[in-house]
Amino acid sequence: MRFAISFIVSCGLLAGTSSGFAREGVEVGGNSTFSKLVPAGDVERSAVQQYAQMLQQAAAQNALGRDDHPQVQRLRAIARRIIPFSYEWNPRARDWKWEVNLIGSRQINAFCMPGGKIAFYSGILDQLKLSDDEVAMVMGHEIAHALREHARERMGKNAATSIGASVLSQVLGLGQTGQALTNYGAQLLTLQFSRQDESEADLVGMELAARAGYNPQAGVTLWQKMGAASGGAPPQWLSTHPSGSTRIADIQKNLPKVMPLYERARKG
């Protein structure tokens, strides 16, 4: 099994390459080739089902924000500004049926499932008292996970591991992905992203927010608030997520790459 995974890495297939020309903004390289082991359309259809079930459960508990709720309108307005800048990162995003909903819960959380299915929990807005700029940073981060197909990548890695080296060639030819997807589709709401995925989403999300006219410096205050709210969170080496101080440092390091985009958007 280790040989199979090592073979992929040694062949240079683990991560895509850049398109060879300079662009404004952050630099994160291409999407992982592991994501190609699972058909994008199948993942997105599974996400639609999972998202619909979640909304039904929330509605049954009277916890789904109404369309006229001020926070729902606020979230959707921010999304409308960010979404057009997603297309460069993933051509499929242009055809996604984007949705933004608010779930009544004290959880400090938000997510964007494959296919543009966004949900915010009221706890992240109420407890952290997020500004619009900070909401845009959260939303950009979550959208970035979908654009970079991190869930699809995790499913691909799981599929490669479970199927094994004996049929790896068939997987690379997409011959067995349908069955693999069936086994992992139910995990969309529980998949754990790697530190690299989280760091990548921070940077891509920061750029999306900046291009939409939201101040990327809000990433610093956002993670300061997150750090204060998490209290005794485990140190970075015990967590799949980068520590708040690491995230803040990475954001500050990359601010010069995105501030011109923000200034241009603000003037426009």
Rank of each mutant, 00 (worst) to 15 (best):
F3Y: 11
S6D: 03
V9I: 08
C11F: 02
L13W: 01
L13H: 02
A15R: 14
A15V: 10
G16R: 15
G16L: 15
S19F: 12
F21L: 10
A22K: 14
V26D: 01
V26R: 02
E27A: 05
V28I: 03
G29Q: 02
G29C: 05
N31F: 08
T33K: 09
K36D: 01
A40K: 10
A47W: 00
V48G: 01
Q50A: 02
Q50V: 06
Q56F: 03
N62S: 10
N62A: 05
L64W: 02
P70A: 01
V72H: 06
Q73G: 04
A79V: 02
R81M: 13
R81P: 11
S86W: 02
A93G: 08
W96H: 02
W96G: 04
L102I: 08
S105W: 01
A110L: 14
A110H: 14
C112E: 02
C112T: 09
G115S: 12
G116Q: 03
G116R: 06
I118C: 08
I118Y: 01
L125V: 07
L128T: 06
K129S: 04
K129M: 03
L130P: 05
D132S: 00
E134R: 00
V135G: 06
M137E: 15
M137T: 12
A146L: 15
A151R: 10
E153A: 13
M155P: 11
A160W: 09
G164D: 13
A165P: 13
V167P: 12
Q170S: 09
Q170F: 08
V171K: 09
L172C: 12
L172K: 10
G175N: 09
A180W: 08
A180P: 07
L188S: 10
L191Y: 13
R195D: 04
R195W: 03
E198A: 08
E198K: 07
E200Y: 05
E200K: 07
E200D: 08
D202L: 00
L203V: 04
M206G: 03
L208S: 00
A209L: 00
Y214S: 00
N215I: 03
Q217M: 08
K225L: 13
M226D: 04
G232I: 04
P235G: 02
Q236N: 01
L238D: 03
S239R: 07
H241Y: 10
H241P: 09
G244Q: 14
A249N: 11
Q252K: 11
Q252Y: 06
K257F: 08
K257Q: 09
V258D: 08
R266H: 07
R266F: 05
G268W: 04
G268R: 12
